[in-house]
């Protein structure tokens, strides 16, 4: 008998799973991390924090000129006042789209991203293709997302760093006068706050 504990449905760990468990075991044994804290971090970013937060910031900026001014001057404080603060949101800048300027955010180094307002980045944001091409040929990238900007609209690309994270404030769609903030927030996608889309136009 080759193995004392053979089972018909033998468990086999993916090599990365085994390697990660080994790292966690080492860090836990040394008292460097608390497994409960690790669980809490996963729960936060897998389930709790996401682009709904950013959409509420955008909707308020559309609806409240004083807040929009504050957001333009000190985005970190304005966003924190809505309860969205913490990791990777310590230094925020809001960049406002206008009739003549469209903003696009990338992280060419890795995947720096404003977690408190957008959660963790989508796969395409982390892809080598996006990270390289967003700076070199932003209009071509935007066209691939279905966004065809008029030539007279300038595109400004913001390269995120570990020190500075950007939130795009899209333009408020026409025909939304008097809408509630919740209804406005529903028009704001994650892509609109990265700059690969515009706010949805109400049908």
């Amino acid at each position: 008998m080759p193995h004392d504990h053979h089972h018909d449905h033998d468990n086999h760990l993916d090599p990365m799973e085994a390697r990660t468990r080994a790292l966690e075991t080492i860090l836990t044994r040394k008292g460097l991390v608390d497994p409960a804290a690790v669980d809490a971090i996963i729960e936060t970013y897998a389930e709790k924090v996401g682009p709904r937060n950013g959409a509420q910031v955008v909707a308020r900026a559309w609806d409240d000129p004083a807040f929009a001014d504050w957001l333009a001057r000190d985005a970190t404080a304005a966003i924190a006042s809505m309860g969205f603060s913490g990791r990777q949101g310590e230094h925020m800048q809001a960049v406002f789209n206008t009739e003549s300027l469209h903003n696009l955010v990338v992280c060419t180094l890795c995947s720096c991203y404003p977690w408190p307002v957008l959660g963790l980045p989508p796969v395409w944001y982390k892809s080598p293709a996006y990270r390289a091409r967003a700076v070199l040929e932003p209009r071509a990238v935007l066209r691939e997302f279905g966004l065809h900007l008029p030539e007279e609209v300038a595109v400004r690309v913001w390269d995120s760093t570990a020190e500075m994270r950007y939130l795009v404030i899209p333009q408020r769609p026409a025909g939304t006068e008097g809408w509630s903030r919740d209804a406005l927030a529903d028009l704001v996608s994650r892509e609109a706050m990265i700059g690969t889309a515009l706010a949805r136009v109400p049908s």
């Binding site: 991390v33 608390d34 690790v38 970013y45 897998a46 989508p122």
Partner: peptide, 29 residues
């Protein structure tokens, strides 16, 4: 780029979530 599948969770496999959280925990500590 926009054809890349968009899973709801940022993590496709449990180890990805754990290695992410271990890194954040080490930074926070």
């Amino acid at each position: 780029l926009s054809d890349v599948p968009q899973p709801d969770s940022p993590f496709a496999e449990p180890w990805q979530a754990r290695v992410f959280a271990l890194t954040v925990a080490m930074n926070e500590a």
